[in-house]
Structures are given as C-alpha cells and as structure tokens.
C-alpha cells in the first residue's frame, strides 16, 4: 500500500486544485490516501464514500448497466468517484479544478487500481472460504 500512497501523492502533486485522493472500500474504510497540506482531517470521514456505494447500487436499477463514475459538484468543491469494485477511488478538488482534468487523473490510476482491486477481491473471497 505504500507504493499506492506514493502514486496517489504524485498524482496529487501534479494535478492543480486537488485537495485529496483516497482509495477506500465500499464502507469508506481508507486503504490509501494522499492529502494536500491545507486539507482538514474531516476529509477522512467514511460516510461520503459509503454514499457512493449506495448511489452506485441504485444506478443498477436504471437499466443503464453498472455504475462506473459519479461527479458531484457542491458550492465549494467537486468530488469525482470511480467504481473499482470492491474499492472506490475518490478525488476531491476545489471548484477551480477542471472536471475533465480530474476525470483524466482518475483514469490514469485505473490500471494500478485494477491490480489492487483484484488482489483485495481475492483476499476477501479467501477469507470468506476460510470462515465456512
């Protein structure tokens, strides 16, 4: 995970106006993170990652296939979340950031995220088998 932290840090440093990049599970538990120096500790709260899981699940009922990404724009900031089931990649940025740049930054991380997601999914499966 240290390698993933370093990768997230490099993306954070080269993308303007990004406040934080987080890799969480569907419940919001953080696996890797990169935070801007000015970001408050509240960013690490799990609830908003869990909201993405709920929204993603709801999207499945629309007949448009599985959800891949959600971009939410608030008064002060914008959040881009990618679904790499069972993990979620979140980019939090100020309104000054271009959404296209954020989406491109998230897509740059798609391959490393795929590798980590597959490993996590296998581990979860293995743990479930051990339980039964």
């Amino acid at each position: 995970m240290a390698e993933l932290d370093t990768l997230l840090d490099s993306v954070l440093n080269r993308t303007e106006h990004v406040k934080a990049i987080l890799v969480t599970d569907k419940d919001g538990v953080i696996l890797a993170k990169a935070l801007h120096a000015d970001s408050g500790a509240g960013i690490l709260e799990p609830a908003f990652s869990a909201t993405f899981s709920v929204a993603s699940e709801q999207c499945g009922k629309l007949g448009l296939g599985a959800n891949k990404m959600i971009v939410s724009t608030f008064d002060g900031d914008q959040i881009v979340q990618f679904n790499h089931s069972p993990l979620i990649l979140t980019l939090l940025a100020s309104l000054d950031a271009d959404p296209g740049v954020l989406i491109a930054a998230g897509r740059d991380l798609a391959e490393p995220m795929r590798i980590v997601s597959e490993t996590v999914a296998k581990t979860i499966q293995y743990e479930h088998k051990k339980e039964y």
Partner: peptide
Amino acid sequence: RHGRPAGS
C-alpha cells in the same frame, strides 16, 4: 446529506 466530507 452525506456526499461530501465533514469540515468542507
């Protein structure tokens, strides 16, 4: 309600 981190 819950889509953004606390403190922001």
